[in-house]
């Protein structure tokens, strides 16, 4: 097993709004190896984007990073020092967002935008490198380089954003729902392309998604988040083959299947519906197996078949 590129340990984040403090990410751990696509899955509001942003020093205003350390390569940072994190990680990490058109400057041609990013790193042969970058993301510089963002399609805009992200030759790419705004047929192409780039450049990707079926094909490992707590994490194959956490099971059962009209089993309630107590399993209010113990402490991590599941159900089995 190769060394991990990015390791986040025990990241906790509070939100400060209207003078109240609320824990929105609790003890978040993550470890991504070079050349790997890592899936981070959760419903909206589960804290998946917030955790990743905070771990590269981009926590939004009104958020307070309480604890956590970030190891990037051989260096180690305290997550609470967002400024130094931002300064030190900005060269190694690139970001890709859902709304690519919104992320591009509407007044500058797409070619120039990529060029600007490129100039930060390189001094020579910028034009050659620019054409090469466009070729890598599957676009023709001669056709598209002089167009403005509103003149290109959604898929093309996402590829331009990708070119910007790749221009700095990052070791890690954080892709925050990069395909949500795209059509299904384009989405697949985009993901396949992301996977091939990742292989070629030995670049790590954290793919943030709200849907398990999106990460199923391209990720080797994943974490599933619920209300700021990791519920299940590890290798993808065992998790999908036999999901252990009730939330993972629920998520899989809730997605309609293209290949068969099987009945859906919806999860009840909503992500933040439970009480705001800190020391509890934050899924218990939606969990079919909830018991009094779930309300009393944060569920322990139980290791099994290449993954960790955070649920008291399995702790019992281990001790018994």
């Amino acid at each position: 097993m190769t060394e991990s590129l990015l390791t986040i340990t025990d990241l906790s984040i509070d939100s400060l709004r209207d003078g109240t403090r609320r824990r929105i990410v609790e003890g978040f751990n993550l470890s991504v190896r070079a050349g790997e696509i890592y899936g981070l899955v959760g419903e909206s509001g589960s804290g998946k984007s917030i955790s990743m942003m905070a771990s590269v020093g981009l926590a939004a205003q009104g958020l307070d990073v309480r604890s956590g350390t970030v190891n990037f390569g051989t260096r180690r940072f305290a997550a609470s020092d967002q400024k130094s994190l931002r300064g030190n990680l900005s060269h190694g990490v690139s970001l890709l967002f859902q709304n690519a058109k919104g992320a591009l400057n509407p007044f500058i041609t797409v070619g120039k935008q990529v060029e600007r990013v490129l100039r930060r790193r390189r001094r020579s042969d910028i034009q050659g490198e620019l054409k090469e970058l466009f070729r890598v993301v599957g676009l023709n510089y001669a056709d598209l380089g002089r167009k403005y963002p509103h003149q290109v399609s959604g898929g093309q805009a996402q590829r331009v954003a990708m070119a910007c992200a790749l221009a700095t030759e990052p070791a890690l790419l954080i892709a925050d729902e990069p395909t949500t705004a795209l059509d299904v047929t384009t989405e697949r192409e985009m993901l396949r392309f992301l996977a091939s780039i990742c292989r070629q450049r030995n670049m790590a990707v954290v793919l943030i998604a709200h849907n398990l079926s999106l990460v199923s094909e391209y990720c080797s490992s994943l974490s599933i988040l619920h209300a700021g707590q990791v519920v299940e994490t590890g290798n993808l194959a065992p998790i999908f083959a036999e999901p252990l956490h009730p939330y993972t099971q629920g998520l899989i059962a809730a997605v309609p299947d293209v290949d068969s009209p099987r009945e859906l089993v919806p999860l009840i309630g909503s992500v933040w519906g439970g009480s705001s107590e800190l020391d509890r399993c934050r899924f218990s209010h939606r969990c079919p197996h909830a018991m009094p113990r779930c309300e009393r402490r944060i569920p322990p991590a139980v290791k099994r078949d290449g993954r960790e599941v955070h649920c008291v159900l399995y702790e019992q089995e281990v001790s018994a």
């Binding site: 419903e43 909206s44 709200h210 629920g250 998520l251 059962a253 919806p266 909503s270």
Partner: peptide, 11 residues
């Protein structure tokens, strides 16, 4: 809607 909510509404 989110996956779990979508399933509730579809049901």
């Amino acid at each position: 809607l989110d996956v779990s909510v979508q399933a509730q509404v579809l049901r």
